[in-house]
Amino acid sequence: MKIHPFLIEMVQIAVLLFAAPLFAGWVKMVKCWSQGRTAPSLFQPVRDIRKLLSKDVVLAENASWIFRFTPYLVFGVTVLAGGIIPIISTDLPLAATADVIALVALFAIARFFTALAGMDIGTAFGGMGSSREMTIASLAEPAMLMAIFAVSLASKSTSLSQMVLVVSQGYSILQPSLAFALLAFILIALAETGRVPVDNPATHLELTMIHEAMVLEYSGRHLALIEWAKMMKLFLFVVLGISAFFPWGIAVNDDLAGILAAPAYLVMKLGLAAVGLVLIETGLAKMRIFRVTEFLGSAFLFATLGMLSFFILE
């Protein structure tokens, strides 16, 4: 039985919207367990979002339209990105909207506006967050592009569906170029989603925060949208890694069995990915901001070695 691609697209966006908070909750749970703390419920992030959505907005006196527009834009961009990345199936009507490079640029729009919103209210924290975020982004970008390059060499494509299709056939993870690209991707994803060695998602301590500093003044539904988008971004980066490097189990044609099996595989892989993320986050300490240069420099090195080893070894 075939399912229409548009339906799959709808299902996928629904999965994104609801699975992202659950994934965030799962990461928190695993983290608590690993540190010997009592974990909050898996549904805690969902409850947080619901609570924030029902609250009134308190807006800074001098906030302009940019500050109010940003949450909607960030949310919109992230949802669109979720329609492009193959989560459960590679046959998506929106997949042709953007290849990986355009996808990176979509996330860049969200970042651009978040940084502007941070500067809009004119506090020192907001400006600090924006400045650091843009600095880290500009260091992550070359590494990201190199990683894309290394992966696209194997699949001869930058279109995500095509990359997933090619990788899902054969022992591609044994290819050195992909192994290096995966290493690079993990480092970049940690930086892009603001996880521990680069930024601390749990802290509100002024001197260490980057992303939190920009969105400090948000409240009510605006904050809900921002937080939700942040969870979706983490989810999407993890899924992007899974799809690009471990795509086995993803549905490649529109039949029902594949579509039904794909989420089961995905849940399993996400569960493992969360454990990996927690291991990294508990094993490493947050870096000084100027050490991030070396962190992302090594990501660039890995990606470049990936590219080189494709030509040298394959």
């Binding site: 959505l53 009134d56 907005v57 308190v58 807006l59 800074a60 006196e61 001098n62 909607y72 834009l73 949310f75 919109g76 961009v77 949802v79 669109l80 329609g83 929106l94 909207t97 729009i109 209210i121 004119g122 506090t123 020192a124 924290f125 400090l216 003044e217 009510g220 539904r221 949208l225």
Partner: peptide, 27 residues
């Protein structure tokens, strides 16, 4: 796509008359 999601989100979140209160910076 971005436009549609933004508009839909905006409309959905404004079904209920939520007051926006202006306040001094929290920081």
């Amino acid at each position: 796509g971005i436009l549609v999601v933004v508009i839909v989100t905006y409309v959905l979140l404004h079904t209920r008359p939520g007051a926006i209160r202006r306040a001094p910076l929290w920081d």
